[in-house]
């Protein structure tokens, strides 16, 4: 199982979703990816994208100016 990070800071939606999607395409089921972004739109878009495509958001941390969303890759 691998754990990767994706820097999507300053990118506007849907770019963080596209980057996540493309990186996840290279990962294996059970792997985890932590996406760091600044566009609050990602709070909706990444979970929606994960639900649709069979992945799971396992953690969302939001502070002043950064959002960290961890996704577990589905089968």
């Amino acid at each position: 199982m691998s754990r990767q990070e994706l820097d999507a800071r300053r990118l506007l939606c849907p770019m963080p979703v596209i980057k996540t999607q493309n990186q996840v395409a290279e990962m294996l089921p059970g792997d985890e990816i932590e996406v760091i972004c600044t566009d609050p739109g990602a709070l909706n878009d990444i979970p929606a994208w994960a639900r649709i495509n069979g992945h799971t958001v396992i953690e969302t941390v939001q502070d002043e100016d950064e959002i960290r969303i961890t996704v577990r890759v589905g089968a």
Binding site: C13, P14, G41, L43, N44, D45, A48, I52
Partner: peptide, 12 residues
């Protein structure tokens, strides 16, 4: 307003 991405919403 919902800050949703319409394409994702439709797919869902």
């Amino acid at each position: 307003k919902q800050k949703r991405n319409n394409a994702l919403w439709v797919a869902e």
